[in-house]
C-alpha cells in the first residue's frame, strides 16, 4: 500500500482555468465543490484523458455534490489500460465536502469491487483545496480494504485546516480586544 501526501499548487482554481477549457465549460465549473480532473501527463499524449468508467463515477457524485469535470464535453475521452489495476481518477475537492466525498467514493469502490479479487489494487488521487494558493495532494495505491486509511487521512487533514482557521479567528479577536 502507498499513501503519499504532498503539497501542490494545482488548486481548484488552477484546474478551472486550464487552457483547453472553453468559456461554456469554465462557466459550468465556477461553483463546484468536487472537480474531476484529467490526467494531463500520460506518457507522450497531450490530450487530457480520464480513466475508464469515469462517467459512472460522475453520475454517482452528481447525486451528492455540485460536481463537474475539467473538460469540454466534446473532448472527454477515456483511456482504457486493461491491466487489473482499478484506476479511479483524480479529484479536486473543497475541504468542506472532503470528508463526505471520501465516504461516498469509498462506498462506491467497495460496492464496485465486491465481486472482484480482494487483493486487486486501486489507484486514485484526491486534491484537498482550502481556498488558498496551495493544496494537499493525497495519492493512494493499494487495496479497496485499505482505502479506509485514505478516508481517515482526509478527515484528519480537513480538521487540521479547520483548527488553523479557528486559531486565526481567535487571534484576530484577541488583537481586537487589545486595541
Amino acid at each position: 500500500m502507498e499513501l503519499v501526501i504532498t503539497s501542490s499548487t494545482k488548486t481548484l482554481q488552477y484546474w478551472k482555468q486550464r487552457p483547453y477549457l472553453n468559456e461554456e465549460t469554465k462557466h459550468l465549473l465556477s461553483d463546484v465543490d468536487v472537480l474531476i480532473v484529467p490526467d494531463e501527463d500520460l506518457r507522450e499524449f497531450k490530450t487530457p484523458l480520464f480513466p475508464s468508467n469515469m462517467m459512472e463515477i460522475y453520475d454517482l457524485l452528481k447525486e451528492h455534490f455540485n460536481v463537474e469535470a475539467a473538460i469540454n464535453d466534446k473532448d472527454y475521452h477515456e483511456l482504457s489500460l486493461n491491466s487489473k489495476k482499478h484506476r479511479f481518477g483524480i479529484y479536486a475537492v473543497t475541504l468542506v465536502v472532503a470528508p463526505l466525498f471520501v465516504t461516498v467514493l469509498g462506498n462506491y469502490i467497495s460496492d464496485k469491487l465486491k465481486h472482484e479479487d480482494p487483493t486487486d489494487e486501486i489507484e486514485l488521487e484526491i486534491i484537498l483545496d482550502n481556498n488558498s494558493d496551495h493544496s494537499k495532494s493525497i495519492k493512494y495505491q493499494g487495496t479497496a480494504e485499505d482505502f479506509k486509511k485514505v478516508v481517515d487521512k482526509v478527515i484528519e487533514l480537513s480538521k487540521e485546516k479547520d483548527e488553523h482557521r479557528t486559531d486565526t479567528a481567535k487571534s484576530a479577536s484577541t488583537v481586537h480586544k487589545k486595541s
Binding site: F45, T47, L49, S52, M55, Y58, A69, I71, D73, K74, Y76, H77, E78, L79, S80, L81, N82, S83
Partner: peptide, 20 residues
C-alpha cells in the same frame, strides 16, 4: 494488455452517442 483511447461510445439499446 491492450491500451486504447475511447473516442466514441454508443448505447447498445438505443444507439445514442454517449458523452459525459
Amino acid at each position: 494488455s491492450s491500451e486504447y483511447i475511447k473516442k466514441e461510445t454508443r448505447c447498445s439499446i438505443c444507439d445514442s452517442i454517449i458523452t459525459l
